[in-house]
Each structure stands twice: as C-alpha cells, then as structure tokens.
Design a binder for these strands. Sequence first.
DNA 1: CGCCGTCTTGAGTCGCTTCAAGGGTAGTGG
DNA 2: CCACTACCCTTGAAGCGACTCAAGACGGCG
Lengths: 260, 260
Amino acid sequence: MTIGSNVESQGKCAQCGIRQSAFCTSADAHVRSEMERLSHIRTFKAGATILAEGEDMPIVGNVVSGVLRVQKTISDGRQQIVGLLLPPDMFGRVFAPLSPFAIEAATDVTLCCFPRPAFEKLLTAHRELEHRMLLTVLEELDAAREWMLMLGCQTVAERVASFLLILHRRFKDSCREADIGWARMYVEIPISRRDMAAYLGTTVETISRTIQTMARKNVIRMLDTRHFEIVDEKRMVKMSGREELAISADPLPSAMYGAH
Amino acid sequence: MTIGSNVESQGKCAQCGIRQSAFCTSADAHVRSEMERLSHIRTFKAGATILAEGEDMPIVGNVVSGVLRVQKTISDGRQQIVGLLLPPDMFGRVFAPLSPFAIEAATDVTLCCFPRPAFEKLLTAHRELEHRMLLTVLEELDAAREWMLMLGCQTVAERVASFLLILHRRFKDSCREADIGWARMYVEIPISRRDMAAYLGTTVETISRTIQTMARKNVIRMLDTRHFEIVDEKRMVKMSGREELAISADPLPSAMYGAH
DNA sequence: CGCCGTCTTGAGTCGCTTCAAGGGTAGTGG
DNA sequence: CCACTACCCTTGAAGCGACTCAAGACGGCG
C-alpha cells in the first residue's frame, strides 16, 4: 500500500537490462528478491580476466552487457575460444571447485555476479532454478557440439559465413526493437578479428581475407570493420554449407544455434 | 526373510555390468526398482541407427557394452562425430522433442533403454536424479569444449596422441582389474579408422599415416590395427601437446577428460 | 603530429587432403 | 578347400587450403 512496498520497484534488478530474459526470471518473486540481495553488479574493461584457467572460481553470474570469451590456452601459447557469452548468458561453472576455462572480457562488460557457494545453495534450495539450469546447460552442450562440427569438417569460409548468420540471428530481435529499416540484414561483430580467429579456429589473416572476398563478391557489404550488411542472404547460406541457418527459417528447431 | 524378497537380487539390474558406476546408482533402492521396471535391455549390431538426426526421440538410456557415436552429417555428406559414448555413459537428450544429433552403434552394443517421457518424469519426481543429471551434463560440456580446443588449434598428430592417452586413461581401471602385467600401457581403440577420422576431424589416410609414424618412432608398438602399447609415455605426452594428459597425473583435476 | 594496435594484403611454404592403387582379412558360396 | 567379394587399412604422389612471415594501410589517442 505504501510506496516502496514492492522490492522490485527500486532495487538494482528494476533497472536491469536483461531482466526479461535472464536466468532469474524462472524464480518467483521472493526468490528473486533473495537473488537481488546476493548479487552485485561489477564492470570490467576489455581484456580483463574474470576467472583464470584452472584457478579457484569464487563467482558465477550473468552477462548484463558486453561480451565474454570462454577460452583455453595451451602451453605453447595457442588458444581457442570455446564459447562467447552475450547478454543474458550465464558465466562460470557451478558445482566445480576450479574453472576449467578462462573467462575474459572481450569488450567492456557489465556482469551480475553471485558468490558461487551462495548460488549453488540457491539452486539446491529451489528446484525450478536447478531445472532451468539443467535446460540451459543442455542447450550449451548442443551448441558446443554444433561448433565441433564446424571446426572439424568445414572450411574457414563456411565457418565465417555461419558465424555471421548466427550473429545476425542472435541480434535480430534487438535490431527489430531499434526499428532500423535495413536492420533486417544488418550484422555487428562485437569482437576483434583476433577473437574471431580464436573462435573460428584460424588466423586473423585468413579471417580478413575471407571477409574481404565475401565483400568483393557482393555477398556482404562492409560498413566498417565490425559492421556489415548481408546483401545476398541466399548465397550467404549456401556459403555456410548449413541450410538450417537460413534467416527465414524461423522459429528455430531449438535454441541450439545460439552464438555460444 | 524369504528368498526373493530383495528385488535387486534377481532382476535384470542384478546382472548389469555397469550397475556400480551408472547413473542409476544415485537413486535409492525403491527408485532403482522403479527404474528397473521401466527399463528394457536392447542390443544393436554395429552400424545400426539408434536415433536419427532431427527425428523424434522416444528413448534415452545407458550404454551397457560397446560404443555409440554421436554425430551430425551435413548435406554434402561430410560428417563429424561429436561424442563417443562408452559404458556407462548415457545417450539421448532429455527435455527436447527431437534429437539434434544422430546416435549410431559404432560396435555391437547393449543398451539399457527408458522411454524418454517416463525418464523425464523420473527426473522431475526425484531431485537427486535431476541433480546428478546436471552434474553429468556439465562434465559433458567441459569435455566437448576440451575437444573444441583440439579441433580448433592442434595438429592431427597431437589429436591422435591425445586420443590414445585419453582412451588409455578411460580404460586404465578395467586394465587393472584384468590384472595383465603390461596392461598399464595398453590401449585398445574400440572404433574403426573411419570413425577415428570423423571424431578427430581428419581423414582415414592421415590417421593411418600418423599412427604408422608413431610406431616407426617407437613411441607406440602396434599389436594389431586396434591394439597398441604405449612404449614411450613421455614422448607421447609431448606429442599430444597437453601436459595434463600425462598418465601419472592422477587423480584428474576433474572428470573432464573422459573420451566423450 | 607521431605512436601504437588493429586490420589488410602479398608471397612463399607446409600440413593435410585428394586421388589412386595395393595388401590384408573376414565372410560367402561353390 | 579355395575362389571371390567386400571392407578396412596402408602407402604413394600430386594439389590445394590455410598458415607463416613480412610489410603496408587505417584509425584512435596522447
């Protein structure tokens, strides 16, 4: 009855940009307020290490804005990005003492963090949260295996085309919201060429050549190094070698084509 | 008090070769007997399709003996194996109507099958089962990402070496049980060169050349096409480029190095 | 303006694939 | 028992996709 009786009307969650879609929506109101109490918002500069590979893992949470990369480095310096985390993805690994992969900020990021032990207690205390977590991890597993398919048996050109189509799909809705006329075929690459190479299992030079070739063939139009328009969707899909990535093929058969 | 009062002393589960280690051990006795009632043992010949890609998925279950491959084929025929399932691994995808990947028998197999809807009800009815499932899927995700690292930034020789070391590790315990003197360094490849190639993201020819080269260098000794002895573990680990795969490096930092 | 990091472009090289052929082994049927 | 087929594995030779190395162009920032 009094102003402020509704916790959610003023806490940090009230202004959260991902609150409609994040993990926490699967909890009911009083669990959400408990989560709000436990969480803290942190920001990191591009390049910062959130969790180091093989080290203790005090936090888990959600990406609120920006992009995280999940990666592993082998002793001679080669490294592979095994996942990109975009809002509202979760980061961190519950129920393991050490982080098997490094988590770093690919851009400036805002994160909603929970102490890992407290978050695990939440999962244990609330079935519906643990169930939602299971569904999330299952989809991540499907996505990881999709990516293995690309790394294992597709050419670099196919991987680049797939990546752009997946990015477009992932951001399509936000493009619509922005209500930009030509946005239907607009793609923003939120990461550097270096990270693209590490994600696609190739080198920056090859990435660059591939993109330039696609532009020269008028399959894409390059606005700047990170912004493109997909001019010829049909040929783009053909280049990706994956018919199921056709932009019109909506809705998805499952969420497995997220850009994880 | 009377003979036969213990359900588990005579049912099919009593003779199950994987009952000490399988998923079902996390359930208590009366849940196990319910699972026993729901399950049925089926066998398939090598090459048989258990679940087709993108089709309805009526069953899930455990591998009792033999090897399953989880794979995806793209339209032009290229295919990638994204997981190998060995006893006592689970196969199938809960909480999804369609199987995103094909599941086929890589060898003759024996499977313990559950109708998927019934199995999902079990998970929902018994927290501890769903929790165990979450842990299992998290480890599979870690393993899939490990594999992405190999596919994305290691050479074929490194992948083959890693694969053999992982296989050895996975079967080390069963070797010990068999009490064979030289078994400590013994490796059996349970699949064909063709499947190895599809798993390692290369071709049969390259697999063959790589193995022959390793044998010529006296890193391994070839007993027959599927049986090897690791003669020089140290060089083997060095070839794999992954120090953490050293056989002596026991116990594992986590279960993430299973041959999934 | 000059520095620096990122992206692009070129030339040479190499790892792996492709194509082609030969050998080994198991299963089949005469 | 052997011929015959079929499949798997091995080996060789040639070609190509991608990497490496090197240098230049672009853009942001002090």
